[in-house]
Simulated assay, not measured.
Amino acid sequence: MGVSMREVAAAASVSVGTVSNVLNSPDKVAPATVIRVQAAIEALGFVRNDAARQLRAGRSRCVGLVVLDVGNPFFTDIARAAERRAGDHDLTVLLGTSDDDERREHAYIDAFDEQRVYGLLVSPIGDDLGRLDLLRRRGTPVILVDRDADGTPFDSVAVDDIAGGRLAVSHLCSIGRRQIAYVGGPAGLRQVADRRRGAEQAVAEVDGASLEVVETSALSVLAGREVGESLQRRSPAARPDAVFCANDLVAIGVLQAFTMLGGDVRVPDDIALIGYDDIDFAGSAVVPLSSVRQPTSLIGATAVELLISAATESPQRHRPSNPVFQPELVARASTLG
Rank of each mutant, 00 (worst) to 15 (best):
D270Y: 13
R195G: 04
R317P: 00
L120K: 07
D127S: 14
A40T: 10
L134W: 00
G151Y: 13
R53S: 15
A187M: 13
A187F: 06
N322Q: 14
A168K: 10
V34R: 13
V203R: 10
I308K: 05
A333T: 01
V243S: 01
S284Y: 14
P153H: 12
D280L: 02
L144G: 10
V292E: 02
A282D: 02
I279N: 08
E83W: 01
Q326P: 00
S235G: 15
D264N: 13
G119D: 01
V214I: 15
L120A: 02
C245V: 04
V34P: 03
L44V: 02
G208V: 06
L91Q: 07
V159H: 06
E226K: 14
D110Y: 01
L307T: 11
L55S: 07
H89M: 07
G337A: 14
A39K: 15
L307S: 07
S297R: 14
Q191I: 15
S60Q: 06
G253W: 07
G130Y: 00
G208Y: 11
G165S: 13
R177A: 11
R136N: 06
R84E: 14
S60P: 07
V324K: 08
R197M: 09
S314K: 12
S123V: 13
R196T: 10
G275S: 04
A9K: 13
T18A: 15
S123G: 10
G185M: 13
D278W: 05
D278L: 11
N322P: 00
D88I: 00
G176K: 03
T296H: 11
R319V: 15
S4L: 12
P186W: 12
G283S: 15
E313C: 05
E229L: 14
G275C: 06
R195S: 05
